[in-house]
Design a protein around this nucleic acid. Structure first.
Lengths: 332, 332
DNA sequence: GTGAAAGCGCTAACAA
DNA sequence: TTGTTAGCGCTTTCAC
């Protein structure tokens, strides 16, 4: 591989002139410019990104932390982030945690090791203080994860309110025994707790029955959804919920699918409301009623915010498109 | 940020000794080891990955090229690749091309710039010679993309045969006018051409009608599937196909969904066979008959192969799990 | 066992 | 406008 030194020699110039050319510095004569260009062509030269990074102390790579890329919500998020980042000359390192704290710590280390110059966390397992510890190594933006500490930049929607409205929608439709699923832990702050607050507010405000057996924690996949139905079917008939709020369309479709397999009817035996509005949900055998997340806007705003932070600039998040929306279909 | 120099000073040793410790060299006294460990702890030291890379000339990052991460086939592939890579101490840079040659070229440049030490191409737009040009900068593995040139390492399934069997399955079921979708160009070699060969072989062998109007090229998404139905409905009744082979489950579900919206029945008015067996396909209103791809095995084998190549070792691909499989459901 | 020193490929003062 | 030079943080001879 040719180096900047080879190019300088070939062009009969110094490395600094070549470096200036590479970095679009002013004050280079047209004559030298063309000699450098020619030398680069002859030697098939490309600057070593690694060397540039070491010297200039910036990596032009951002890291994106997701729990599972196979969750369509995350793949659409990564899609939006990647497009925006590439537009701005950045690359995207993708890191999956599978909800494991240890894995997330390793991702945060990437910031310390200067592998990435910034981080977008689309899922978070660590507590706030742990994340704050890493902020000194580079900007960290939380995407779709709300924390009360406003010193951590975050791009969020009002999931508390949307969940509240989703639960009220069930209540208005006449359902009285509402089950609830979360990806995190019900009592503990952290993953999913914003939505849980909305759920509790709606239940309390409307004086609905609350039953601990109707709460499902740490559920994520289609298969988790199926398991919920199996647990539900153990319950005595008078203790069965008549509706369930699922924390993702994957969980919701697992629930519906298992219910149908067991010969039940949806929404007659159980109304199901999902979260995300993933592309396939309108085509399911029971088209899914769900809460749409503005996934593209979330990705774009997070990336804009992070890149501004990397450049030490201010960025005003555009809230207009960060709205959740209830999509009424046939599962409720 | 503390550097190796700071650690050396803190421990009262030379940088070379610290470097040796970092690289698990033999011949360091236990005494010094603990002094170094302590100094690292005190200074909260982490080696700069960039500097290590520059000096040791290896990047510990692999690049993965996909056309669109939102296609579940690719997100599951990336999932498998990422897990395997992380296990081996590598990171994954994700790059989307959206089937654009220009974007793919930029990805290949990452290899030349030494940003990545190897590349897995899960989609390819460039011609073989262009890819071969980049092999001198690092190993490139094709994943699920077959080319005749065996000097390019590739991990593939027998898509020609699976497509052949898929078409024969339609014929056995009594369908006589079979339409065909491909992500690439029908006549041209390249993306999708292996499957096309299987299609042509089955049609010819069984003396089936072939109609150019039943061929759909460069289709990828659900919305592309819907458009196909719109084109189909322009055809005079006696020229309409009675079955269609879709190149992905996304295209297949778009076709089915649009047909149903238009009041047609599946498979009565049109039998549809998909490709991939994505998780949601069994839960669609018309459960999809499709060809399952061994996506996890493809990801794992590609990664094993690439990492071996990076280390200059041989790797024998394990073909056992690289089998395609027809999943019979209700859309045929 | 340990240290001194050269240098990976590049950028950016500082001089000229 | 251009060149000289000192590093960025690390690894790796080579000497002791």
């Amino acid at each position: 591989m040719a180096t900047i030194k080879d190019v300088a020699k070939e062009a009969g110039l110094s490395v600094s002139t070549v470096s200036r050319y590479l970095n679009d510095h002013p004050y280079i004569s047209e004559d030298k410019k063309s000699r450098i260009k020619e030398a680069m062509r002859v030697l098939d030269y490309t600057p070593s990104s690694i060397a540039t990074q070491l010297r200039s102390r910036k990596s032009k790579t951002i890291g994106v932390i997701v729990s599972r890329i196979t969750n369509p919500f995350f793949s659409y998020l990564v899609d939006a982030i990647e497009k925006k980042a590439v537009q701005s000359g950045y690359r995207v390192l993708i890191m999956q945690t599978y909800d494991e704290l240890e894995a997330e710590k390793n991702c945060l280390e990437m910031l310390k090791q200067q592998v990435v110059s910034g981080l977008i966390m689309c899922s978070v397992e660590s507590d706030i203080e742990a994340i704050k510890d890493y902020q000194k190594f580079g900007p960290i933006v939380l995407c779709n994860e709300k924390v009360s500490d406003m010193t951590i930049p975050q791009v969020v929607t009002d999931q508390e309110q949307a969940t509240f409205e989703g639960i009220e929608y069930l209540i208005e439709k006449g359902y009285k025994k509402i089950a609830y699923c979360t990806g995190g832990n019900f009592e503990v702050d952290g993953h999913g707790s914003t939505r849980t607050k909305g759920f509790e507010r709606a239940i309390t405000l409307n004086k609905q029955t609350f039953n601990k057996k109707w709460i499902f924690q740490r559920v994520h996949t289609i298969s988790d959804g199926r398991k919920i139905v199996n647990q539900l079917s153990q319950l005595p008939t008078n203790q069965k919920p008549d509706a369930i709020f699922a924390n993702s369309d994957e969980v919701a479709s697992g629930i519906i699918s298992e219910m149908l397999d067991l010969g039940y009817q949806i929404p007659l035996d159980l109304a199901v409301i999902g979260f995300d509005n993933q592309p396939f949900t309108s085509m399911l055998s029971i088209p899914l009623t769900t809460i749409e997340q503005p996934v593209e806007a979330l990705g774009i705003e997070s990336t804009n915010l992070l890149l501004s932070l990397i450049d030490g600039k201010k960025y005003q998040i555009n809230d207009n498109k960060l709205k959740l929306k209830l999509i009424e279909r046939e599962s409720v």
